Amino acid sequence: MQVLRKSLQRGVVLSTGTFLVYEAHKLISGFAEVHASFKVEEVIEQADYLYGSGETEKLYQQLLQHKNSDDAELLWRLARASRDLAQLSSTSAEEKRQLAYEALEYAKKALEKNESNFAAHKWYAICLSDVGDFEGIKTKIGNAIVIKEHFQRAIELNPKDATTIHLIGIWCYSFAEMPWYQRKIAATLFATPPTSTFQEALHYFHMAEEADPNFYSKNLLFLGKTYLKLNNKKMALLWLSKAKEYPAHTEEDKQVQKEALELLNSI
């Protein structure tokens, strides 16, 4: 009311009609801006709550209403939700494929809206990797360099995000472990095919632990697996034991415990 009263006082110098149109437009525009800003924050808060609660389908449906948004924070969350829905065992093979491409489009749009958003880079890289599973070895290897570049850009923008650092470690581990026939295909298709070493993978897995100690059972497992690849059984035992003892909060944690135990028994 005070804002309106001040506006009315200023309006004396304007004609009545001009004043009413001008002030109504100004007030409505101001309220609309505040409301739009508040709404985005509210949607993000609700989305993060649903994500933390594991409400995958509900989260996807909620965020899908905002697929035409210009907000990168909403779009990368929608990309993540689409991907998470694709990962569910109840999702059909055709739906998995559709959701993978959908997720990539949302992540791409998030990047277009805000190139400085670390999560947009992170989820674009993850979704691009997923799509490679449907397009064959040539596309997958061809995308690999782009994927690593986006992970590295995400880390530059947020050096404390342990998950992204872990994912670069997985990237390195995968190429260090690449079978000879895939290396041969890569060498014939690309002048300089992507390569890595177990030492490089180890560097990133340790870097992830430094950023956020004990944050993820799979990082502990891969520290153990990488040390095994490097024939350091003492360190492999240490990290595999940590992975085995990690509290199982998710299905993935249970799978990690199982694999860690099998590897420990094989040493």
Rank of each mutant, 00 (worst) to 15 (best):
Ala81Val: 06
Asn265Phe: 06
Thr56Ile: 15
Trp239His: 15
Asp48Trp: 09
Leu221Tyr: 13
Val131Trp: 05
Pro179Ala: 05
Leu59Tyr: 11
Leu74His: 09
Phe198Asn: 02
Phe19Gly: 05
Lys122Gly: 03
Trp123Thr: 01
Val40Lys: 06
Gln62Gly: 10
Thr188Tyr: 09
Ile137Asn: 03
Trp76Met: 01
Ala72Phe: 14
Asp133Tyr: 09
Leu238Arg: 14
Ala110Lys: 03
Ile126Asp: 01
Leu85Val: 01
Ala154Glu: 00
Lys258Met: 12
Gln257Met: 07
Asn114Cys: 15
Gln2Lys: 11
Ser92Phe: 09
Leu8Cys: 10
Glu200Thr: 15
Ile267Gln: 04
Lys113Ala: 12
Ala144Ser: 14
Ser116Ala: 05
Ser174Ala: 15
Leu261Ile: 13
Asn114Phe: 10
Trp123Ala: 01
Leu59Gly: 06
Lys39Asp: 09
Pro194Ser: 05
Ala86His: 00
Lys218Cys: 08
Leu50Trp: 11
Ser37Gly: 14
Ser7Arg: 05
Ser196Ala: 15
Asn68Leu: 03
Gly52Ile: 05
Ile44Asp: 00
Glu57His: 14
Leu85Phe: 08
Ser174Phe: 07
Leu59Gln: 03
Asn143Phe: 15
Leu20Ser: 08
Phe134Gln: 03
Ile165Cys: 13
Val131Asn: 03
Ala201Asn: 01
Cys172Glu: 00
Ser217Glu: 02
Met1Glu: 07
Gln257Leu: 04
Glu149Thr: 08
Gly142Val: 02
Gln257Glu: 04
Leu238His: 14
Ala47Phe: 06
Gln61Gly: 03
Val21Ser: 09
His25Gln: 11
Leu64Ser: 06
Gln87Thr: 12
Ala107Gly: 07
His166Pro: 03
Gly136Glu: 03
Val43Gly: 01
Ile141Cys: 06
Phe175Gly: 04
Glu95Tyr: 07
Leu240Phe: 11
Ala103Glu: 00
Lys225Arg: 11
Glu149Met: 06
Leu128Val: 08
Lys109Trp: 07
Ser90Ala: 13
Met178Glu: 01
Asn219Asp: 09
Ser116Val: 04
Leu14Gly: 04
Ile155Val: 06
Leu167Cys: 06
Leu20Gly: 04
Ala79Ser: 13
Leu59His: 03
Tyr227Phe: 13
Ser7Tyr: 06
Leu238Phe: 12
Ser7Cys: 13
Glu45Val: 10
Ser53His: 11
Tyr227Thr: 01
Trp171Ile: 03
Val131Cys: 14
Pro159Glu: 00
Phe198Gly: 02
Ser266Pro: 04
Ile168Glu: 00
Asp130Pro: 04
Asn232Leu: 02
Lys233Phe: 10
Phe151Lys: 01
Leu167Ala: 11
Ala32Ile: 08
Phe175Tyr: 15
Ile185Cys: 10
Lys242Gln: 15
